[in-house]
């Protein structure tokens, strides 16, 4: 390899490696800001901001959803299996919202420890299967989010 090509090759490696290291350091420094949501445990540990709105993510506890029959207001409990937090919300829920489902709520922590959400988004998991397979798994005792929302045509 002639010296000019060697020099060029080295500079290519230098660009890629340099950008890699710089970005890794920058991302490490901003780690906390890159989290799209906090878990109930982080909230319990006081890691979440109290003065400004933030997002909280977790699973909707089975049987915890209570809807107000006259309005869109809804109350439910979020869990990360370690800590729980009560959430109140007044608005339209996404199609995937159901008990056992992972969701992300955006809002503010009230002094009494409940989370007042102004936005609720559903976070679906990476599992895809036909309804029959889900039923079979459910019968076999595998824990899956409630699939009652889907009715075959």
């Amino acid at each position: 390899m002639n010296p000019r090509r060697r020099k060029l090759l080295l500079s290519v490696i230098f660009i890629v490696a340099g950008m890699g290291i710089a970005t890794a350091l920058a991302l490490k420094a901003f780690q906390a800001n890159l989290l799209y949501f906090y878990s109930p445990m982080q909230v319990a540990a006081g890691e979440a901001p109290t003065a400004r709105p933030f997002r909280i993510g977790g699973l909707v506890v089975e049987g915890s959803v209570s809807r107000n029959p006259e309005s869109l207001a809804v109350k439910f409990t979020l869990t990360d299996t370690l800590e729980e937090i009560n959430v109140t919300y007044d608005g339209i829920l996404p199609d995937l919202f159901r008990e056992g489902q992972g969701i992300v709520a955006n809002g503010q922590l009230l002094p009494d420890g409940t989370f007042d959400a102004f936005e609720v988004l559903a976070k679906h998991d990476e599992n895809y299967m036909p309804p029959e397979v889900a039923d079979a798994l459910a019968k076999a005792g595998v824990k899956l989010p409630d699939s009652s929302h889907y009715t075959p045509p």
């Binding site: 890629v16 950008m19 780690q31 890159l34 799209y36 992300v104 990476e126 895809y128």
Partner: peptide, 28 residues
């Protein structure tokens, strides 16, 4: 040179769902 500088973004896109809490689900 621009495309080489941007290569660092590729592993970030791929691993973003594992490294940080995201709304996007993990790899299937």
């Amino acid at each position: 040179i621009l495309s080489l500088v941007g290569v660092v973004n590729i592993p970030i896109i791929h691993y973003s769902v594992e490294w940080w809490h995201t709304l996007h689900q993990g790899p299937t």
